[in-house]
């Protein structure tokens, strides 16, 4: 194969037909309140960890929903489990439970040091 001095750029487009959705399917079975998330971001706004380490509950939830799991375990490890997000959620989503379930689900797919 020839090298012309440049590479063919990879596409950033997410193909929704082929996303890995099995973990999210499990998640909403384990914690059905996740289904009613509005993605309003109140959880991320109030998050104690967000200001320090950039943790974003809303985004982590969406990453799992869209099957983008590459950095998810690392992102989830930033949560300090204080539960402030649960207090502000307008849809009464059990956020802490979702974090714990997502972490548990991710241990099935990621190296041990990211596990609980």
């Amino acid at each position: 194969m020839k090298n012309f001095g440049f590479k063919i750029s990879a596409s950033r487009q997410l193909d929704m037909d082929t996303i890995q959705s099995d973990l999210y399917e499990k998640l909403i079975q384990l914690e059905p309140t996740a289904k009613r998330c509005l993605m309003c971001g109140a959880c991320a706004a109030t998050c104690t960890a967000a200001e320090i380490n950039g943790f974003n509950f809303r985004y982590c939830h969406l990453l799992m929903k869209r099957g983008i799991l590459d950095n998810l375990a690392k992102e989830l490890s930033k949560c300090m489990l204080c539960g402030k997000c649960y207090m502000v959620c307008p849809r009464e989503i059990n956020t802490r439970s979702i974090i714990l379930k997502m972490k548990a689900l991710m241990t099935e797919t990621t190296p041990k040091h990211y596990s609980l």
């Binding site: 012309f4 001095g5 440049f6 590479k7 063919i8 750029s9 990879a10 596409s11």
Partner: peptide, 14 residues
Amino acid sequence: IMANRGYSIANSRK
């Protein structure tokens, strides 16, 4: 610009 040709060719490939 050679460094940008990857964008160009990626679109054609699509």
